[in-house]
Design a protein around this nucleic acid. Structure first.
Lengths: 130, 130
DNA sequence: TTAAATGCAAAGAATTTGCATAACA
DNA sequence: TGTTATGCAAATTCTTTGCATTTAA
């Protein structure tokens, strides 16, 4: 447990929303200028392997990191509106049946929370009417 | 309809698998060295706006492009194994119920095929047993 | 002809890597 | 003390942009 790791975990615990590696890197830079971006990336990778954090792929590959097992973690899925970019939380059980079906059919073990779903949120749906 | 667009569409029709913009760019470079990478990217964007092609976000942000309405397009979803990286096709209707539920609950219009699902494929599940 | 598309080169972002140094156990 | 992690800078990879030129309609 090094300083950098403590700081990264702290940032994950503190920062709300769905911070990307770059977001975290930026936040950390403010309070701990000494900690290099590369270290943040490497630390996130290490912590992921250790099972302490996980990430969700939102749009365009910007993965959002979060602590595992934290109070606010309570397994949930994400839906990304590709119009306004907002992220909506969905119940973690939403895909249970789908996962079950995929498991039976092709033996694929779904990790539903690892990729966001996407589409249009209510607000953008109404705006988009041509 | 310009040369570049014809070539991009041709590449999409020809190239199997789930080519990324970079993949397409590379393929095209072999047969049509004149066509610049930037043009491929721009063309893909344009064709997307025109509704001719679409892309799926697989892992790490590398979007896979495909022609819309092509015979082999028949609406389907993708599941990405994050161990071996292979992409599996799933029936397009798989998420219908989920979409319905999300629509009712938060008014979110899901586009299930726009992001891949992810998890472990059968082969990797068995290999991973520690 | 005239607007739109292209090629080029260069700029950008996000992320990774090699290596010497520093910190942890 | 001997790894392992870090800081740094530079390299990569993927993608976008400005602008002059070409092309299609």
């Amino acid at each position: 447990m090094t300083t950098a790791r403590r700081v990264v975990i702290e940032a994950l615990a503190t920062q709300g929303g769905h911070p990307t590696a770059e977001d975290l890197s930026a936040t950390i830079a403010q309070h701990h200028p000494g900690i290099h971006r590369a270290t943040v990336y490497r630390t996130l990778e290490t912590l992921t392997e250790m099972g302490v954090v996980a990430h969700v792929h939102l749009g365009h590959g910007a993965a959002a990191y979060h602590l595992l097992g934290s109070p606010q973690d309570v397994a949930h899925l994400h839906a990304l509106c590709h119009q306004c970019g907002r992220v909506f939380d969905l119940p973690g059980s939403l895909m249970d049946e789908v996962a079950e079906r995929v498991r039976e059919e092709i033996g694929f073990e779904l990790e539903a929370s690892h990729h966001a779903l996407s589409g249009l949120c209510r607000a953008c749906t109404s705006t988009t009417v041509p």
